[in-house]
Structures are given as C-alpha cells and as structure tokens.
Design a protein around this nucleic acid. Sequence first.
DNA 1: GCATTAACCACAG
DNA 2: CTGTGGTTAATGC
Length: 226
Amino acid sequence: MDKLDCSLCILKSKAAKNLHANELSLMNESCVVVNFEKGETIFKEDALSSNIIYLQEGMVKLITKGPVKKQILKIKKAPCYLGLPTTMGDKINHYSAIAIVPTKACFIDINVFKKILSINTDFSFQIIVDLCKNELEQFDRCVNLLQRQVFGRLADNLIYFSEELYKSDEFELPLNRNEFSDLVCTSRESITRMLKELSDEEIILLNGQNVKILDKNKLVNIKKNG
DNA sequence: GCATTAACCACAG
DNA sequence: CTGTGGTTAATGC
C-alpha cells in the first residue's frame, strides 16, 4: 500500500478542489491507492460495493452485461470519481469498471465520503453538478443509440473521443474493434467496414488504432443525419 | 419486386 | 485480433 498525501495530489477533480486541508487529511486516513494494468477490473458488477473510487490517472470502461450481450456504458477518464451511482444507489454494483490504459485509483471509504459530503457544501455541490451533467449525457447517448443508424452512432462516438476524452483531432483508440463495437452497439465487422469507409472518403485518417479526424464538418453531418 | 442496411458466419493473414 | 466476402433478414420505396 502506498502512503499518500491527498493534499499533494495535483490531479484534483473540480469537486476535490473545494476540499479543505482537514477534509483532505480525513480522506488520507481511509484512502488506498491502487495501480491497474490495462484490462484489470477495478470493481465488478454484482459485487458489494463500499468504496468510492477516485480516478487519479488513466481511463476506464464501464460495462454491464445486458440481456443479450455485454454493453459498454461509458468511457471515463481521470480525474473523476467512479462508482458514485453504483455505490450510493444500491448495495451491489450495477456495472463493472475495467482499466483500458494503465490507471491509478484511490479507494475511499464510503462513510468518509459521506461525511465529507455533509460538511463541505461546495464539494457536495460540485458532485451534484457532475452527476447532473452525467445524467444529461446519458440521456443524449440513449436517444442517439436508439434513433440513429450505425454511421451516426459511430460518428457520435468518434467525436466524443476527440472532443471529450482527448481534446484533440488525433488520438489512439484505447479499444479494439470488438470493444468499440460494444460501445457503438453494432457488430465488429460493421465497425471495420465503416471506419474503412470514413477513411476512404478522407473524413478520417486511419492507421490501426490511430485515428485522425480530417473533416470534422462531414463527421458532424453524419452524426446529425446518420 | 428492388435497394439498402446491417447482422451473422466463415476464413485468412 | 482484424479485414473481407458471401449470405440473409428486415425495412422502405
């Protein structure tokens, strides 16, 4: 177990920036840092959960086993809190979190977390804002998945990676074709074909997992009309 | 009917 | 793990 000092952590979420020294030291006492390799599970669906996880570095996928097949719910990147809905909302986890790149995470006892929520309203407020943003995002994603065709969903996800996760037109997909299809809700073959097609039309530059968006406008158009 | 979309299957690097 | 081709079911002119 690494010894840590939360007050020295520069990778603070918006919420954690509001924490006072005494609250940070409260976290220190019950906080454990764990490193995860790509592919390692941070917490598992159906297991009892009693921690809030603070993602210090890295990226994870949240997945759940649907009635037919597994589904990637969302890709989350550090810094952020993980497992708020699934830890506060029920006794058992409704989804799993798996690292998709080397990831560093702090495990915080739920009771300590609750205590801090109750004494620091700025912190609590920011947590609520995050949760609300997340819910809006999920509503959008839900409608997109249900009402758009595959090309639109693919474009949507490519734009999400570019704008939300990497803040760059060029990025390395942290998912293989199969996982990406689980995110976009389509088949592996369709992902292959459609990425190739976008590449042929010079809307993206594709080189293995490396994606560069060449024509953002067209991509946005596909997202709208797909 | 005929075209389009996209999943499923099989097979090859 | 990925790309390709063939096949097929569903949907919409």
